[in-house]
Design a protein around this nucleic acid. Structure first.
Lengths: 273, 273
DNA sequence: TCGTCCATGTCATCTATATGACTTGGTTGA
DNA sequence: TCAACCAAGTCATATAGATGACATGGACGA
């Protein structure tokens, strides 16, 4: 037999009638008025916090919509609205018929969201990454400013060379705070099975969700020129990226240098829906 | 007295009961099954076509949600879903308490959506535009390819110099098909009251909704160097933009050349919601 | 005259529910 | 053994309506 829960006529919210067992444990009802914020925003925040705290690790399945809505004590439509937002931010992934999952940093996602270099004729391809160096350093002024800390803060610096169709196209210098990545070694970087963002996520609980980039054109210095096999002084595209993790904290400063003789950095202004 | 419309038990859609006068004239009911497309997509398309055909000119107010939903013979929630999409694409603008309007190309929108240059310290500012030349030309290969036509097609070419804080930072070469902009004159370009995209929209019914950009680093040639007041050969950022109008047709090819000694091209990968 | 209040119309949020589409895994039958 | 089928669980779409927030313009009173 099925029946509907009685509702509170004042707040029009389901009253707490407990069924056993709790179909979605660990999710508390949302306060009716969470700081004047719309309910779906409060639900979004609650979900985000569950992810940040590791209650929902990457790849985990969320409870189904009905149960989760009941646990939060909101309507399914409201829950869906919150989940919609997180899906749009690539923090959750929905699969019809399967469920809703915490997003993981797959190669495809990296390519789509964070790798914008393609050949001039439009061909897109996954780059072959080659580790050039791995060092413990102290941050310079630029990295420190981007990472909201002070110059001299201990960090790891990783240099990569990226090849497309066998030719070196991109040089990356990556700076990440040592405090966030305790125990990182060259071996772990070298032997990572997937992208470096996947490594951050799976090994250190750091999930990159977005980034700001500043692009400029510069002349290739001697080191870059050598790494990329071009004459020094050639105009190259410099991309300075600050990557932001789940909590909103900057976690990576990356300077990508791109040879744009046969490749471009592509950008889509306002995608069609 | 209020009453609800009877519903068709098979399709669960409101039966056509005409009230006088029609509160939302010009909007026909959506076919129940428009090519297997979800209903809200069909509604979105119907709205788009009304805009493209000029039935809803820029700045026009849509009928209110209830009336419009009734005219399309869909639920308000379904209409809202369609409108949500168009708002996300900056094609419609909602103003709570006022209504929903067809978006116009304001200066703010241009800055936000299509102008990505800012000073290295993060200061954003509207550029001062200076018209350098206005010519009738025939398209070169690049422009023709971008605009999906043949080299030699008649076009207008506009050269602009953009200044930020008094210093020249950007040079634009804009190519637009003459066929789409009949009657355009240097005077009209020079005396436009707002952005050039606003001119396209208000004078020629061409509404730019999105763009693809390809960025590369090049050495400034003599002409660019003179226009921007830098030595020839200096590395500059070249942005080749193809702007897409409402129907999905490419309508503008633009090559922006940016001096990045004190400025950057900024890009946001996945905005927070 | 001018400012305050309020009625009205709009979008924004939220609930509740029904039905369809898709995926998975087990059952059934040749 | 194995392929076809089917049931259950999930998200996707759609409806209907209630309530709140916001903007505007007119009525009203000092």
């Amino acid at each position: 037999m099925t029946w509907t829960n009685p509702t509170d006529p004042v707040h029009n919210r389901r009253m707490s009638i407990v069924r056993s067992p709790d179909p979605a444990p660990g999710f508390a009802p949302i306060a009716p008025d969470a700081a004047g914020m719309p309910l779906y925003r409060a639900v979004r925040r609650a979900l985000l916090r569950s992810i940040e705290e590791g209650k929902l690790p990457p790849g985990a399945a969320l409870p189904n919509e009905t149960d989760l809505a009941a646990a939060f004590d909101v309507a399914v439509g409201t829950l869906r609205r919150a989940v919609d937002d997180l899906v749009a931010e690539h923090i959750l992934v929905r699969r019809q018929g399967r469920g809703t999952f915490v997003a993981t940093h797959t190669r495809d996602r990296f390519l789509f969201q964070f790798f914008h270099v393609e050949r001039s004729d439009g061909l897109r391809e996954a780059p072959a990454v080659e580790l050039l160096s791995f060092e413990r350093i102290r941050m310079d002024e630029d990295a420190a400013a981007a990472l909201a800390t002070r110059a001299g803060t201990p960090a790891f610096q990783i240099e990569n060379r990226l090849k497309l169709q066998g030719t070196a196209v991109v040089h990356d210098r990556i700076v990440i705070p040592a405090a966030l990545f305790r125990g990182l070694t060259e071996k772990r970087v070298r032997e990572r099975p997937s992208t470096i963002y996947h490594l951050y996520q799976s090994e250190f609980g750091v999930t990159v969700v977005r980034a700001r980039e500043r692009l400029s054109a510069v002349a290739a210095d001697r080191a870059i020129a050598r790494a990329l096999g071009v004459p020094p002084g050639v105009p190259v595209l410099q991309v300075r990226r600050t990557a932001i993790a789940l909590g909103g904290r900057p976690v990576e400063y990356r300077v990508s240098t791109i040879v744009t003789t046969a490749h471009d950095y592509v950008n889509q202004l306002s995608r069609p829906s």
